[in-house]
């Protein structure tokens, strides 16, 4: 894709910029779709109909919502730190957006085919943490500060089980490159890492319980890192008003929203790439290829985005100590056992 683009436009710089813009366009389109989906799913769970007026079944409503957000007055509290207050949403969004660079959308399109792709995504997500802290502090609001501290503590805590779960998949696939990991899972649904990856049936059977655990831990930790229900404590409206984005409005608020939606897809895509075959078709060679690859990755990713939406409108919220308990006292020990067992099985 890179070479193709360079050949097409001639100038490498322009080609690189084009490559970088593709995920941005994807995020924007995806955010609109998810906004619509979230509202419709929520409405059907809650026995109501949601948007019906703008366009057919309200399909134009997300555009209206975005337009409304863009037009809104941009309020900066008088006591806020203007510079950091303005910069924070960008840090939060950029931290998520740069992660998309390493996601292999199909065998033919990877933003940056990094050897350490997954490690890179984990690393850049720490920019999000800094951005959240920035927003909470710059708002100069106690609730916002509490929200951002909670959020940072939550993301930092959940990075550990998620990194350990990632390690399980990485150990099996033998690569940190997400494209390589996806390639490794060739040959249908039962060669996916969640079912032990391609290999002899005995190894598969032995690995499956551990990989399944790792898969669920990664998914749960991912939801926690995206600050979604039941782990949406940072913006728990019943306690902290709106957490770190209490004071934000208009475009900046939209930025946080966009980052949250992008993060939802990012964690889903990571889970899909590591455990569910990435862009591989579940039917072996049937319906596979670069274009089908993009379809499969986005379809699988959207499925988990849907799962997150579904959970959000179904479950109550954890308390902050319970949240930490789940991470440190449940997931981390489980993951250590998994890593140990997977290591043993692989060596053996």
């Amino acid at each position: 894709m890179q070479e193709y683009l360079i050949g097409l436009v001639g100038e490498p710089l322009v080609a690189y910029v084009l490559m970088a813009v593709v995920p941005l366009v994807f995020i924007l389109v995806y955010a609109l779709v998810t906004l619509y989906m979230e509202m419709k799913v929520a409405a059907h769970i809650q026995d109501r109909v949601a948007y019906m007026r703008t366009g057919w079944h309200g399909v134009l409503q997300p555009f209206a919502d975005i337009l409304k957000l863009l037009q809104k007055e941009d309020i900066i509290p008088a006591q806020a730190d203007r510079l950091l207050f303005t910069a924070a949403p960008f840090f939060v969004f950029v931290g998520t957006y740069v992660g998309f660079a390493a996601i292999p959308f199909s065998s033919g399109y990877v933003g940056a085919d990094l050897n350490l792709g997954i490690l890179y995504i984990v690393a850049v997500s720490s920019i999000v943490v800094a951005g959240l802290l920035m927003s909470g502090w710059a708002s100069n609001n106690k609730w916002a500060l509490l929200g951002s501290l909670r959020s940072a503590a939550q993301i930092v805590s959940y990075e550990i089980p998620s990194a350990l779960a990632i390690l399980v998949a990485v150990m099996i696939a033998g690569s940190l490159n997400l494209n390589e990991v996806s390639k490794f899972q060739e040959g249908g649904i039962f060669n996916w890492v969640v079912f032990g990856g391609p290999g002899p049936v005995v190894t598969k059977l032995l690995l499956t319980p551990f990989t399944l655990t790792a898969f669920f831990v990664l998914l749960t930790a991912g939801i926690a890192e995206a600050n979604r229900t039941p782990f949406d404590l940072p913006e728990a409206e019943s306690e902290l008003v709106q957490g770190f984005n209490t004071e934000y409005s208009g475009m900046k608020f939209a930025m946080f929203y966009l980052a949250e939606y992008a993060n939802m897809f990012l964690v889903s895509a990571i889970t899909v790439c590591l455990f569910l075959g990435g862009w591989q078709s579940p039917f072996g060679s049937f319906m596979s290829g670069p274009y089908w690859g993009a379809f499969w990755l986005i379809a699988k990713g959207m499925f988990f985005v849907f799962v997150q939406v579904w959970m959000r409108w179904t479950l109550p919220r954890l308390r902050v100590d319970q949240l930490m308990h789940v991470s440190w006292k449940v997931m981390v020990p489980f993951m250590f056992v998994c890593i140990f067992a997977v290591g043993l099985i692989l060596v053996w």
Partner: peptide
């Protein structure tokens, strides 16, 4: 009370 606990859906059911 459901909303206080972060569950939005039961609230709308009860209002229905």
């Amino acid at each position: 009370f459901g909303i206080d606990m972060g569950a939005f859906t039961p609230f709308l059911w009860t209002f229905r």
